[in-house]
Design a protein around this nucleic acid. Structure first.
Lengths: 230, 230
DNA sequence: CGAATTCTTGATACGATTCAAGTGGAGTGG
DNA sequence: CCACTCCACTTGAATCGTATCAAGAATTCG
């Protein structure tokens, strides 16, 4: 939440909004598909994913969340979860009551716009993923995702130089790209062999940012990282 | 905008919000990529699409809009358009000044939540498209899109029995699904031959709704068509 | 009516899935 | 500490899906 300047007062309000918190284990559901939660979940630390299962048991991950993401602010107005949220690493999650959120929308327009903005950025990321799935090669799609994650993690100070912790398995990453594990692996190899990145020990290190962004045609505009008055 | 009950007063406010309107020809840009508009566009009538071009000239359509859709409410808070919006048919478009929108967020919380909800539904549709692109067969993806459009058009009374006007070319539809025109055509044929639907004269008619929804695994929950208190 | 799109179909080449088998590392219990 | 198991990763081969190229038919538009 560093896309706009917040008064101390507003920051305090945000913190007060999160009235409960809990730790989740890997693979634990943070919110289940079909649920009608009374609170919205903020990811305080860890990696989580939104996903949907198909009738044949395959899964598509529709979003990845990192520390600082308000994961299901959506449920505040959408009421019924049309997808689930799962912990991809041990996760520290905070919860904000929908009643408290409603209170904010009644009394704090500036903060409301900021929360709204947060969901809009989610939407922008979704659109970029659609583009990647439809019109990028699998290699470029993978490169693009790495660029995006690096950018987002850097914003919350979860990077060290050009590397970051990345707890997903290749199977989970395949579910993000919408391809099979086997093909994901074969897509990944050239990126390693060409020296664009390495991925060992649950850590991704980018070795050639210029070539990686060029391959991915990465343009960070959609992440709205510049501060603008709302 | 029929997902919540609106007071007469609020309906009037909404109408007053749209201070200008304009007609657009087919293929005309309603909003251009990279623009920083001072107003948001509502589609009063017609079909429009959000799109993004790749460096190699291919295009991905990330959203389809029908009458009643608030197309780029996003720009109100996102400021810079990371994609363009094009008219796929002659379009009647209304414009709401960002200043007036800000005014609404300052004074009318209930209306604000309704506008926010509108963008959240957009996001839910995006997620469903990601699932369709990643884990559905192309045939199921196409079927799913037809189901979705039928549902959305029915909500704004643009259907007649099981048919609706559909002005897109096959090339444009291919850009929605992220496949080539040739393949779209070959994907379409079985749906016709199996008697699920017909598509002639810019009109799609669904002949077998049960089998079409079954093929698509269509579950309309994500469209949030039920009225809920906000 | 003619010209230009759009749609349709076939052939070929490349991309991606599936099935199958093997490697390697982390954790467990004797 | 070692053998064992489990799981994630890697690789190869066969099969199926999708793109590209090309050409002809149908439709729309001026």
């Amino acid at each position: 939440m560093n896309r706009d300047s917040l008064s101390d007062e507003e920051q305090a309000t945000l913190r007060r909004l999160v009235s409960r918190d809990r730790l989740f284990d890997v693979d634990e559901d943070i919110v289940s598909e079909g649920a009608r939660p009374q609170y919205s979940a903020v990811l305080l630390d860890g990696f989580a994913a939104r996903y949907k299962y198909m009738a044949d048991g395959t899964r598509q991950i529709t979003a990845l969340h990192v520390a600082g993401d308000f994961m299901d602010l959506h449920a505040f107005l959408l009421k019924t979860m049309d997808h689930g949220i799962i912990a991809l690493s041990p996760c520290h999650v905070g919860f904000a009551e929908h009643g408290a959120l409603k209170e904010v929308t009644e009394t704090q327009p500036h903060l409301t716009r900021l929360l709204w903005l947060d969901t809009l950025i989610d939407g922008a990321i979704h659109r970029e993923w659609i583009v990647a799935m439809g019109r990028r090669s699998k290699r470029a799609h993978l490169a693009h995702l790495v660029c995006e994650l690096f950018y987002r993690l850097q914003a919350v100070r979860k990077t060290v130089d050009f590397s970051f912790h990345f707890p997903l398995t290749q199977m989970e990453l395949a579910d993000v790209l919408g391809i099979s594990v086997v093909h994901l692996n074969k897509t990944l190899q050239p990126l390693r062999h060409d020296g664009l990145l390495s991925w060992v020990n649950h850590t991704i290190t980018i070795h050639d940012w210029p070539r990686l962004t060029a391959l991915a045609q990465f343009d960070p505009t959609y992440l709205s990282c510049t501060v603008e008055p709302r």
